[in-house]
């Protein structure tokens, strides 16, 4: 049975703590770029927590929203890549074949969510910080576009493990680095093709929305809207 990976972000649970951001840094060999580069918008994080203000003192409201690659089924980034570096994988992910990327940056322009990071320079690690690098994930070099992969290395290693044990993948057997770190369980990862998985259950919630859903990109990331007090009749 083929899988269709999806992520549910429960905005009612998200506290904006950004543990997911650092977890992603560690898992996916994402470099830090330093103050000067950060100042001109070249940070590399694959997931960010957007903060939106509404209203003013004394009644300001804040909304946090983690934004990562939405792994769209109708992805604007895929069609525009001249070399198939950005393409749709068999399991419905928006794949990014780093070695195939020639760096036209067209995908990043086409992405309505602005979730793609580009290696403007070769990333650097002050030794021995490089010893932390995850050997399961390649270290990208200059001129390559990168983005959230739904921790494809974890998917692959779980699939290989299941294959070795001659069984199907179990829901919750593995998860992405962001979801694993998320203390309030705002991020839930799983197989949308499995009707019994937690992610399927949550994705069919009445609070479910898609980010920029009106664009028709068919994201596989679902957001569950914040509720209000005494408005908790649906989970």
């Amino acid at each position: 049975m083929s899988h269709k990976w999806g992520l549910v972000v429960d905005l009612d649970r998200c506290t904006g703590c950004e543990a997911c951001v650092v977890a992603c840094h560690a898992e996916n060999n994402i470099p830090t770029v330093g103050k000067d580069q950060a100042a001109i918008g070249r940070t590399m994080q694959w997931i960010r927590v957007e903060r939106t203000w509404e209203g003013d003192f004394p009644n300001p409201k804040v909304r946090f929203q983690p934004v990562l690659c939405q792994q769209c089924d109708a992805a604007p980034c895929e069609a525009v890549c001249p070399t198939y570096a950005s393409y749709h994988t068999e399991e419905g992910l928006n794949g990014q074949a780093y070695n195939r990327c020639i760096g036209t940056r067209f995908c990043a322009n086409a992405c309505p969510y602005t979730v793609r990071s580009f290696n403007f320079y070769n990333p650097q690690w002050q030794k021995p910080l490089n010893l932390q690098l995850n050997p399961d994930v390649s270290v990208r070099s200059v001129g390559i576009m990168e983005k959230c992969t739904f921790c494809v290395q974890r998917i692959k290693s779980a699939e290989i493990q299941a294959e070795a044990e001659k069984r199907d993948l179990k829901d919750g057997e593995f998860t992405t680095a962001c979801a694993q770190s998320c203390a309030s369980k705002a991020l839930v990862f799983g197989d949308l093709n499995d009707p019994h998985s937690e992610v399927s259950r949550l994705a069919s919630s009445s609070r479910a929305t898609k980010l920029l859903g009106e664009l028709g990109t068919k994201p596989n990331v679902t957001y569950l809207e914040r509720g209000a007090w005494q408005d908790a009749n649906n989970g």
């Binding site: 950004e18 543990a19 650092v22 977890a23 560690a26 910080l129 010893l131 932390q132 770190s181 203390a183």
Partner: peptide, 29 residues
């Protein structure tokens, strides 16, 4: 050490870890 995760058994953090905790690796390296 490549990655830090919360210990699932520990009653305090039950498998979860905050941003600062994740960065403990950078203290080591």
């Amino acid at each position: 050490a490549k990655k830090l995760e919360g210990s699932p058994q520990n009653p305090v953090n039950a498998g979860k870890l905050c941003a600062r905790g994740q960065a403990g690796l950078q203290v080591l390296y």
